[in-house]
Amino acid sequence: MSDLNTQAVARYKNNFLREVEERVEEGDMVKMCMQCGVCAGSCPLGPHWQHSPQKIFMMIRAGKREEVLTSDSMWMCTSCYNCIVRCPRQLPITHIMHGLANYAHRLGIAPKGQPTREFAKTFWNNLIKKGRVNELTLTLAHYFANGIGPGIQIALNMQKIGLGMVLAGRLNPMEIFGGHSVKDLNGFHAVLAKAKEIEDRKKGFSA
């Protein structure tokens, strides 16, 4: 278990709702849920979740910290916003789901190997390197995430599309050598560092 997680447990003891309110994006709206279940009924991926948003909110209130944060449910959200549109209490459910996923990831207890989480990590790492997404390295990193064999298989399957994109000028093969960056890469990294500092302060991670 990560240090951050141990600290959080110590800090909030049994009050998981307060932890969510303070540390999760829009977490202070969780208490406003009235358990009508419209979100659960509206979610297109409903049958594939372990816990519907309605249940996640109830679990938060019931203090089921471990179960919520290690759940893969919020990672299944496709951001269709059906639930937000329909929630009679106007909870920003989609945002809360992403907030929970983010928090679990931050604490290092999100489910390992969960595809959405893995791809998000790949995407983020690719993005912060040069301040922009390098389509080629991102694609390759994604293809080869599961090893060389499957990577080659996927790449062969996608060969035609890749070639078409190269010919149409939508994909530059030269980008494989690091690619180009945003104009002020140092400035970009400074922005990220500042944002993290602010967030850590706001959510009580620092000190």
């Binding site: 208490k31 406003m32 009235m34 358990q35 209130r61 019931a62 209490r89």
Partner: peptide, 24 residues
Amino acid sequence: DLRVPGMGEDFYRSAQQKGVIFTK
């Protein structure tokens, strides 16, 4: 089933704001 007739729904929301936990 939480039944709050009249303007009770506003009162219910107010209690949630105050942190009263509602468990079904």
